[in-house]
Computed example of a mutant assay.
Amino acid sequence: MTASRAITWEVLESRGFETAWVRLGEGGLRAHGRAVGTVPEPYWISYELETAEGFVTRRLTVTAETESSTRTLDLRRDDAGRWTADGEPLPAVDGALDCDLGLCPLTNTMPVLRHGLHLAPGEREFLMAWVSVPGLVVRPSQQVYTHLGRTDGGGHVRYASGDYRSDLEFDADGLVVDYPGLARRLP
C-alpha cells in the first residue's frame, strides 16, 4: 500500500457523518471507518474493508449499533467468487466483485478504480453485494457506472441502480468528492 488518507464526508441522506482511513496501493485498498447517522434511526457504524488485487472485495466487517440492538456482519468473498455472511453462503451475490455498504461513499471507489472510470471513457455494469444500514442485510444490487468527463483533479461518473441515478465527482485517486443527495467530502 502506498498512499494513506483520512477522509470525512457529511452524509446528507442519513443526516450524519463518516470518516474513513484509507490506504490505497497498486491494485488494492484497505480502509476502516466510522459513521453516525440519525436516519432511518440514530445509529453508529464501524467497519473494516479489505480488497484483493484489482480492488476486488475480499472482506467487509461491520458493526451497527442502534438504541435497540447491536448487529455485526462478516462479509467475505473467496477467490472463486463465492460470498458468505457470517459463514453462511450467499448464492444470490456469487460472482459479484464488490460490496456496497449503504450510505458509505467509500465503497463506490472499487469499481471506479478497477476500470479507471473517473479518468477515461467507459461504462460498466456490476452485480454488488449491497449491505443495508443499519440493518446489515445483504442483497444483490445491479449497478451501472458511466464515465461522464474529466475534471481538474479527477472526473465525473454516473451511478445508476434501478430508477436511481446520480452524477458523482471523484478525485484523482478515485475517491468520492461529491455524491449529490447522499454525501459530500468535507475539506
Rank of each mutant, 00 (worst) to 15 (best):
F126E: 12
L117T: 06
L127S: 11
L12R: 14
A52Q: 11
M128F: 14
L90D: 10
R82Q: 13
R82A: 12
L136H: 01
V93E: 07
A129I: 02
E169I: 11
G81T: 06
R139N: 15
R71T: 07
W130L: 12
W44V: 14
V112L: 03
G162C: 06
R15A: 15
F126K: 08
Y43A: 04
E26V: 08
A31I: 06
S161F: 08
H32V: 10
V138R: 05
L60C: 06
G153N: 13
H156F: 13
A80H: 14
P91K: 13
E88Y: 11
D79H: 13
T57K: 08
E13A: 15
G102E: 04
R184Q: 10
V137M: 12
R59L: 06
L106S: 04
G27M: 03
P111W: 04
A183Q: 00
I7K: 05
H118T: 01
V138N: 07
G162K: 00
A96M: 03
L168D: 06
L75Q: 10
V56H: 12
D173R: 10
Y43W: 05
G81M: 07
G181I: 01
G181H: 01
C99L: 10
S69F: 14
W21I: 12
D100P: 04
C104P: 06
V133D: 02
S4D: 09
R82K: 12
G95Y: 06
P91V: 10
T146S: 09
G154R: 03
L103N: 10
D94V: 09
E13V: 15
S141H: 15
T61P: 02
M1H: 15
G153L: 14
R124I: 07
Y47Q: 07
V176F: 00
G153C: 09
E18V: 09
G25T: 05
A6K: 14
Y179R: 02
G181A: 00
T72P: 08
T63V: 13
T51V: 03
W9G: 00
T51D: 08
D171G: 03
G181E: 00
F126R: 06
S46L: 12
E41V: 13
G149I: 03
